[in-house]
Computed example of a mutant assay.
Amino acid sequence: MNDVIDLEVLHRPADAARRRAAPPLLFVHGAYAGAWCWEETFLPYFARLGYDCHALSLAGHGGSEGRDRLDNFTLNDFLDNVASVAGALPAAPVLIGHSLGGYLVQRHARRSQVAGLALLASVPPYGLSGSLAYVGLTGPHLLAGLSRFQWHEAPDRIDLRVLRELLFSTTLPQARLDAFAARAQPESTLALAELMLPQPWQMFGLPRPLPCLVVGAGQDRIISPADVVATARAWGVPAQFCPQIGHALTVDDGWEQVAGMVADWLARHFGGKR
């Protein structure tokens, strides 16, 4: 699509007393979500550590325009969203992507300068074909539940038991599960269809060396450990895992563990000790 889309971008400036001489951070959400998934967790956490933080909602997501034509957006449209917001920042950012967002920031790094990448429970460079098989084999009822939600936006149509099993750890409080369900939305069927096509060529020609962190969720029912390891190998870094957390690690119980891993990595590469 060639339309100009008004994108929602949440901004948390760095704590003035702790401001670092570091690149800005740009957070990119996963499927079915928006910038809101970082709003009460990662954004204030990293702003307090002295980083200038931004999170965008992709077209048709969160507070961005285009919800009425969500299914028309392609992966290239979403890549244009990332490029537009990243290009407006005062310096090349560190891109922190979750799930679909992780896939997008990897693609963005192929064509634009970035300071670094943090990939959290990320779709691997070759797409979702392996994940589709993984969920289908290990939890076909979860795949069916996700498919049902894709066609019903109303929160009261979401099976909360399936949602918890698919995305979260068992310790997430019910109130936070309810809050997530109330804001979750369907995803672009066109973008999902593109993402499910095998893309083995995306594993080659990555812009290395580049500071990169790859973190997997130990209780992830969507992205398999093998996918996490494959992504890390493609970038020439070790895979790291946070054992007691589910796929939706931006808001799951224990998200602070993941944020701490990212903070340690940022401090080593961009900002000294935290």
Rank of each mutant, 00 (worst) to 15 (best):
112 S>Y: 04
100 L>M: 15
107 R>W: 02
84 S>I: 03
106 Q>Y: 05
107 R>F: 02
107 R>A: 12
107 R>C: 06
86 A>P: 00
88 A>Y: 03
99 S>Y: 05
119 L>G: 14
123 V>F: 04
110 R>F: 06
105 V>E: 08
111 R>N: 10
102 G>Y: 07
70 L>W: 05
72 N>A: 11
83 A>N: 03
119 L>D: 00
103 Y>G: 11
100 L>R: 07
98 H>L: 12
111 R>G: 08
99 S>T: 11
67 R>K: 13
76 N>D: 15
74 T>G: 04
93 P>I: 03
83 A>I: 01
99 S>C: 12
106 Q>W: 03
78 F>A: 06
77 D>Y: 04
108 H>F: 02
68 D>M: 09
118 A>M: 01
121 A>V: 02
104 L>Q: 01
89 L>K: 00
86 A>W: 00
69 R>Y: 09
95 L>M: 13
81 N>C: 12
124 P>D: 06
82 V>C: 00
105 V>A: 12
101 G>R: 07
97 G>W: 08
65 E>P: 14
110 R>L: 11
111 R>Y: 02
107 R>E: 15
65 E>D: 15
68 D>L: 11
99 S>M: 07
103 Y>Q: 08
70 L>A: 10
116 G>Y: 02
67 R>T: 14
117 L>H: 09
72 N>F: 04
101 G>H: 13
96 I>S: 09
115 A>F: 03
102 G>F: 09
